[in-house]
């Protein structure tokens, strides 16, 4: 267990959380503690996004004055925005938690990338396979993910403790009933649990909590003039030279921000002037589209999330 700051002073300058956020916070802390107490070797998946940021913050709160008794794991596809990687390294250091980074080297060697291979193969190999490799490599028996039930239809049916049989298989028909808050943390060797402490949070809750708690987020969530190209009706940011322009495409600078962050050529930006958390929350309340709308990997067909999950995607 890491060093402790047992004398951390309260922060009276921060406004009190609303009852609603306080309740969500307590529920998530209970779930996170349950995993630390009930499993031998848990890990927290850290995707660098706003949800991961809240989840990590909750973990730090859950164990205070101890440090979270598990490492963070980032599955790096090598196609994350540069801002994201910078943020990741700063945060790990700031919170004093151990960060593991795993890349599917085999996929990299095969030359898998989102531009030439297409979004679905890239996601399958670099994210899903990469994740399974890392879980096997370290022998983790439980992995936290920041998914929320309000994100997508098949997520709405997901358990908080989601059972995966050996080989990381998610069978929606073979999930354990989850009654009260009596989570079943028992697994046999080779079986694992994915745990979603933010299940009952909404996107708006995440932003309001981020603001209330002063949690740092990747600057890409805030609007700024950025180089983008318009492709299939979506605004794609060119984060580096690896993304070639198609005939007729022009790179232009527009005020954009991201609602959801994934691999950079697969995450579309939205036009926005929201440069602060207050702006983002105001924009969200007026919004008429879901955050995953900008995720190119979801649009193939509406059941695509369920398919990816069966394959082991988070």
């Amino acid at each position: 267990m890491a060093v402790v700051d047992a004398s951390r002073p309260p922060n009276p300058s921060r406004p009190a959380l609303s009852d609603h956020l306080r309740r969500l916070e307590s529920e998530s802390i209970e779930i996170i503690r349950e995993v630390a107490a009930g499993f031998d070797n848990p890990v927290m998946l850290y995707s660098i996004g706003k949800d991961s940021g809240v989840m990590l913050h909750l973990a730090v709160k859950a164990f205070y004055p101890s440090k979270p008794p598990f490492p963070l794991l980032h599955v790096d596809t090598t196609w994350k925005f540069q801002d994201m990687i910078r943020h990741r390294d700063t945060i790990a250091e700031q919170y004093g938690v151990k960060l593991l980074v795993h890349t599917n080297e085999e996929g990299l060697a095969r030359g898998i990338n989102p531009i030439a291979s297409g979004s679905s193969l890239h996601t399958q190999v670099m994210k899903t396979e990469g994740l399974k490799q890392a879980l096997d490599k370290y022998g983790f028996d439980a992995a936290f993910g920041g998914a929320r039930r309000d994100e997508e239809k098949s997520r709405a049916k997901e358990r908080i403790f989601s059972f995966r049989s050996a080989g990381h298989v998610w069978d929606p028909r073979n999930q354990r009933p989850e009654l009260w808050r009596l989570y079943n943390t028992r697994v046999n060797k080779g079986e694992t649990i994915r745990v979603f402490p933010l299940s009952n949070w909404t996107e708006l809750d995440i932003w309001e909590y981020t603001r209330a708690e002063g949690i740092a987020v990747v600057p890409l969530y805030f609007a700024a003039p950025r180089p983008v190209v318009e492709r299939d009706g979506m605004l794609i940011m060119r984060d580096d030279e690896r993304m070639p322009l198609l005939p007729g495409e022009v790179e232009e600078t527009r005020w954009v921000r991201f609602r959801s962050l994934g691999c950079y050529p697969l995450s579309a930006a939205v036009e926005s002037r929201a440069t602060s958390l207050d702006d983002i929350i105001g924009e969200m309340r007026a919004s008429r589209t879901s955050e995953r709308q900008g995720r190119l990997i979801d649009v193939d067909e509406s059941a695509s999330m369920e398919k990816k999950k069966r394959e082991g995607y988070f």
């Binding site: 039930r149 309000d150 239809k153 098949s154 997520r155 709405a156 049916k157 929606p172 028909r173 999930q175 299940s199 009952n200 909404t202 059941a303 369920e306 398919k307």
Partner: peptide, 19 residues
């Protein structure tokens, strides 16, 4: 009716949470 299998059968087979 979230999951593909149940959508095709036209029945809800699990607990879904909505907000």
């Amino acid at each position: 009716d979230g999951l593909e299998a149940e959508r095709q059968q036209g029945i809800t087979i699990d607990v879904a949470y909505r907000f």
